[in-house]
């Protein structure tokens, strides 16, 4: 097998190249697309290869740009909208929530917004409250949106391709804190997005730890540390947050009788609560060895000061400490 070492950012770039080479109906629209500064190494030279008519850098108009992508998708195109910072994408909520998510339903399944909206989480480095948000739980609340959050390098490419080739509106969230992750991967594979779901990325018997995106990376770090302490964790990467399929997690918790969810978003009404509830609806809490645990952001905006950021964002050290206490 011809495997190639790439990082997460390069994997997304490979996804773009695959889509643009093979699908004339794909075009890309958003801010900062002609500048290397906005989107890291994920879109390098695309406008030179495919032309500025297909890679469209735009005025500062998130709302109209996203709405226009919805419109183009209703007329035979497969647009990819890029929001280099998901915080700015909030200007586009009418197009996302009122229009794209509901379009198929409102018109009796006769018209489908086949667009992918890529929102990049870009936080830390004293960027503060408006350059920091992880809003996957928000989008997952809305029926009609598919929400994809890749952790692995392979998924960054192949789930991206699957998202764009899917005929429904997809919110694809990648995290700049993952861009330097590397892996050996084969050539792009066409996956059917609706058939994708959570994956066990490390098997274990003592505790189930669920994450998505960057939170899965923290889960993996916890896994290594726990194994040194003879605690065998089963790590599940969610990959697809909506529509949610909790069956794999339920099976895993049946086995481990312990559940931990790590979520890079806020605690209240979040993805962690959804996972825990979905499990407790199926498994008698009395059968669990411990109450389920969730590690999320506190319900405050992100701070600016570096000293405060250290405590604000999740880290494996404090999570491992808490988990170890369950096994003493």
């Amino acid at each position: 097998m011809n495997k190639q070492k790439v990082n997460y950012g390069e994997a997304i770039l490979e996804g773009f190249n695959f889509l643009l080479e093979n699908n004339p109906e794909v075009f890309v629209i958003g801010q900062g697309l002609w500048s290397p500064w906005y989107v890291g190494n994920t879109m390098t030279n695309l406008e030179k290869k495919y032309g500025k008519n297909r890679i469209i850098d735009t005025p500062v108009s998130e709302s109209a740009v996203t709405g226009a992508a919805v419109g183009a998708s209703l007329c035979g195109m497969r647009p990819i909208v890029v929001h280099p910072r998901i915080d700015f994408m909030l200007y586009a909520m009418d197009a996302v929530v009122n229009e794209a998510a509901k379009w198929s339903y409102m018109f009796g399944g006769q018209s489908h917004p086949s667009l992918t909206i890529r929102g990049i989480i870009n936080r830390g480095g004293e960027q503060g409250a408006q350059h920091s948000q992880a809003l996957h739980s928000w989008f997952s609340h809305i029926p009609g949106l598919r929400v994809v959050m890749p952790y692995s390098v392979l998924d960054a490419r192949d789930l991206f391709i699957a998202s764009v080739l899917n005929d429904d509106p997809v919110i694809f969230i990648d995290d700049r804190w993952l861009y330097d992750e590397t892996d050996l991967i084969e050539k792009p594979k066409k996956l059917v997005l609706s058939e994708q779901g959570p994956k066990i990325i490390s098997s274990g018997n003592d505790i189930t730890i669920v994450g998505a995106g960057f939170a899965t990376k923290i889960a993996q770090e916890c896994n290594l540390k726990l194994r040194k302490n003879n605690i065998s964790a089963e790590i599940i990467d969610m990959r697809i947050l909506s529509p949610i399929d909790p069956s794999l997690i339920i099976d895993s918790v049946e086995k481990t009788q312990n559940l931990v969810v790590i979520d890079g978003g806020w605690k209240s009404c979040g993805f962690a609560s959804e996972i825990i509830t979905s499990v407790l609806e199926k498994i008698d809490p009395k059968k669990l060895n411990n109450k389920p645990l969730r590690f999320c952001l506190e319900n405050t905006p992100a701070p600016t000061s570096n000293k405060l950021e250290e405590d604000y964002y999740l880290n494996s050290y404090s999570i491992v400490k808490k988990i170890k206490s369950l096994f003493n």
Binding site: S63, A64, T66, G67, G71, A72, S73, C75, P79, A95
Partner: peptide, 10 residues
Amino acid sequence: IPIALGAALA
């Protein structure tokens, strides 16, 4: 309005 604009773009 932006949706119609997108149709024109298509």
